[in-house]
Design a protein around this nucleic acid. Sequence first.
DNA 1: GATGAATGAGTGTTCATTCAT
DNA 2: TATGAATGAACACTCATTCAT
Lengths: 199, 199, 199, 199
Amino acid sequence: MAETREMILHTALELCSRRGCEAVSVRDICSAVGIKESSLYYHFPGKQAVIDELYSRFEEHCAALTGELDAALEAGSPPGREGFMNVCAHFFDGYLSDPFCNGVLRLLDIERRSSPEALRLYTRWMFDEPLSYQARVFAALTGPGGADYLAVKFYAPIYLYANRYLLCGELDGEAKAAFREAASAHAARFFSEMEALYG
Amino acid sequence: MAETREMILHTALELCSRRGCEAVSVRDICSAVGIKESSLYYHFPGKQAVIDELYSRFEEHCAALTGELDAALEAGSPPGREGFMNVCAHFFDGYLSDPFCNGVLRLLDIERRSSPEALRLYTRWMFDEPLSYQARVFAALTGPGGADYLAVKFYAPIYLYANRYLLCGELDGEAKAAFREAASAHAARFFSEMEALYG
Amino acid sequence: MAETREMILHTALELCSRRGCEAVSVRDICSAVGIKESSLYYHFPGKQAVIDELYSRFEEHCAALTGELDAALEAGSPPGREGFMNVCAHFFDGYLSDPFCNGVLRLLDIERRSSPEALRLYTRWMFDEPLSYQARVFAALTGPGGADYLAVKFYAPIYLYANRYLLCGELDGEAKAAFREAASAHAARFFSEMEALYG
Amino acid sequence: MAETREMILHTALELCSRRGCEAVSVRDICSAVGIKESSLYYHFPGKQAVIDELYSRFEEHCAALTGELDAALEAGSPPGREGFMNVCAHFFDGYLSDPFCNGVLRLLDIERRSSPEALRLYTRWMFDEPLSYQARVFAALTGPGGADYLAVKFYAPIYLYANRYLLCGELDGEAKAAFREAASAHAARFFSEMEALYG
DNA sequence: GATGAATGAGTGTTCATTCAT
DNA sequence: TATGAATGAACACTCATTCAT
């Protein structure tokens, strides 16, 4: 079975997302999994390979999620306030607070200082893709003019709240609730202003 | 002379702000300074004490800067667009892109995952104090109603741009220019919208 | 095989009993064993754990020896001069000059200054247990009155000779012979006096 | 003034007699004295020289004490029980429990394992001289025959009690009282037995 | 699949000592 | 007299990794 392999990946993410890869030793991971250190090398070429697999799974996961959102957008959604809020919820539940994605995002946030690959992934999936998707949403809603700026106006507070509540400390109910409240208050107010301006 | 002590602090910040404290060894610091490892222990009780001094200097620096800004605010500034942009410039030049503060902020961004003290400092000086100051500015401009939300609307993109351009990678002219452009475009547009709404 | 582990224990005792634990480095032990320092940490959590295991083995050894002597005593031995001398020989051969016990006793003699555990063991196995056993022997021979004092009178010279000949310097044939001569002269004279007094 | 020099000697003895020389660092000594480490090297060539001076002062002290005792012996003392007990008290107060001698004896007890000089001093002043003096006392009392054995019979319990009560742990009132009680009980009983035998 | 045993490179830190001032 | 500053050698210990079994 490939169960041990999965356990290693899961445990490595759990530990590294809290303290950063460098602060987590192969010993730490293996003793948490319940195997000997040498056993890890049967499943992976080395410590970095474990992290690399996490990265590539993350990118697959994100690509799939992006695909869904794009398909929904082309299919005409989100049309109004409700659709808009749906997208927000999707982004929150299936991404920012999804245990796997949340873990990798924390990991990337640490590692991007030393790993170019981590920097690439973080920049792409925390800045470029969300902003670009959001711009496409606003372009569909209000036309291409100013869509980029609307995207920043909408996304920046969410990025800030995510950093504040979801990407450090415990990812518990309290943190999620704090984020959800701040983010949805923002989204509601934002949508109201949009309606006032664009109808 | 206490020159060596300062060199150690400077070099430690330089290295740790790039890779995180744990990834930087006493050997790294000392060889960059040009002293033997044992000499560091004449000036500091240990590695952590070097970091701690950086933290406490940072907090002093920030407290002073906050004091200045508060005094200016009480003295009636910023009154209009110009004063507002001045504050932004001050925040950018004397804080976000000031080599010392920028370094400590990068350091805190990494260490807050494992160090409660770093988390406290980061949360205070990246979230709480900037938002609270900005809210006081808006309260002076438009009255207390909605000042908190305006503060988020104004600060969140700056936080995002800072993370994107100033707090990872090289802090070179290019990075500063990219940040400055994005941030001032945001500030200008934001001020225009404010003028349209509040006069 | 656990051969390396035993070698580490053996070598550690050899070295530490001569110079004290603090004066013996992990490097010293490992290079004498013929392994790299890091290998010691596969077999033991650290240097102190090696010493601790020596202590606990010593206590097991002593408990077993005490058990034997007590059993012999209850079985009616030592009845006369011969039995008495037999006990002395046992105490000498299986304890004071047994390479393992002798080493640990030297070790304890040094370490009891800084380690409460070592002090406890030394006090127990160099003072309390021998005196208490000897007192039981004399109680069996001459009745309970004055058994404690007889025990001191008998044991104190042995303790002195042990410190003089067996517990410092080389434990070679010369040292053993010197001790044996002094101790048996004492025992013989002591027994003669006892016979004169108690019959 | 040579006050600092004396302080260093005093402090070094205080610390080393508890934990052994090797466990006490120049830092420990100097910080207890209240000077910088480099200052010690103005007064002494090095750490070992401090210890060496303690040794030589000890030997002077002991030689003087021996001289006194010998002079008293030649002058006809101790003639009877009282004189005998006086010698014991002198040996106890001015030697075994004298802070300086006690400290050096503890030190020698530790160091004799690694330092030949310490072994020489310990052997001389804990075994040879006391036993030889005692033998002279008994020779004066009972004639030369058996004086050596009487010396061992008398001194060995004192040596044992000294090791048990005075030469490890705190040298406080409790320890001194415990030793004094055990030792004087032994001396009294011993003298009674002698009177019974030799009149 | 997993592990017992080992290792070379590296970690932060302490040590006694030196020497110009 | 004393110290500020430095240092080379040593310290106990951790690391990711290897490899025969």
